[in-house]
Amino acid sequence: MPSPLPHDPIAEARRQWTAHGWGEYADGMAAITSVIRAQQIFLARAEDVLKPLGLTFARYELLTLLHFTRSGALPMAKASARLQVHPTSVTNAVDRLEKVGLVRRVPHPSDRRTTLIEITADGHGLALTATEQLNTTLFSDPGLASDDLAPLLRILARLRQEAGDFDQPAQW
């Protein structure tokens, strides 16, 4: 990890925004930039845990999604929708996971046009191992005080709902 900067660059950008006559937009810019930077920090931490297991966070999410299904399989389009990523991203993740025997493509039993992604026994095992490691090293201590988590989750859920991610309000 690089050495910390002597000052907060987002706070400085906010100050500059205001100084250059864009003050009414400064808080919005700072909020969006802060969330993007926080996402980068969280993703880097998750990738540090998953890299020794041969996974990226995207591949971990797909394995875990399949692990949670009753049958261990989902249509590619449904996996894409649930992960909220472009179908090409799912195809790429499936290609990589299939090469190492963690998932396989199987024909849908009643729809010849649909291909299912099915998790293998090795995929189930790795999903559990990866989850245990993420729970222990990252999710148990995301770097935020526990009192801050519930309000943050409510705020982000409201933002995601208003952006059209889901219809029903989340229960936090």
Rank of each mutant, 00 (worst) to 15 (best):
M1S: 11
P2L: 00
S3L: 13
P6L: 04
H7N: 12
D8V: 04
D8I: 06
D8T: 10
I10Y: 02
A11K: 12
E12V: 15
R14Q: 14
R15I: 02
W17E: 03
H20Q: 10
G21M: 04
G23K: 02
G23W: 05
E24C: 13
A26C: 04
G28F: 11
G28N: 09
A30D: 00
A31I: 13
I32T: 06
R37T: 01
Q39Y: 08
Q40R: 06
F42C: 10
A44L: 11
R45L: 07
A46G: 07
D48V: 03
D48S: 12
D48R: 10
K51E: 09
G54L: 08
L55V: 04
L55S: 06
T56M: 07
A58Q: 11
A58L: 12
R59A: 06
E61W: 01
L62K: 05
L63E: 03
T64R: 10
L65A: 01
H67C: 04
T69N: 02
R70V: 15
R70G: 11
A73E: 02
A77N: 06
A77K: 13
A77I: 04
K78R: 13
K78W: 05
S80P: 13
L83F: 08
L83G: 02
L83K: 11
Q84R: 15
Q84I: 14
T88W: 09
S89E: 15
N92W: 08
V94I: 13
K99A: 13
L102A: 02
V103M: 00
P107K: 13
P107I: 00
S110K: 07
D111K: 03
R112D: 04
T114M: 06
T115M: 13
I117Q: 03
I117D: 00
E118R: 13
I119P: 01
T120S: 05
T120V: 13
T120I: 12
A121I: 10
G123I: 00
H124M: 12
A127V: 04
A130T: 01
T131C: 02
L134K: 09
T136S: 13
T136Q: 11
T137R: 15
L138M: 08
F139W: 15
D141W: 08
P142Q: 09
P142C: 03
L144G: 07
A145T: 11
A145S: 15
A150M: 08
P151C: 05
P151L: 07
L153Y: 04
L153H: 12
I155W: 10
L159R: 06
L159Q: 09
E162C: 07
A163V: 05
D165M: 14
D165I: 03
F166G: 07
D167F: 09
Q168S: 15
Q168C: 03
Q171A: 08
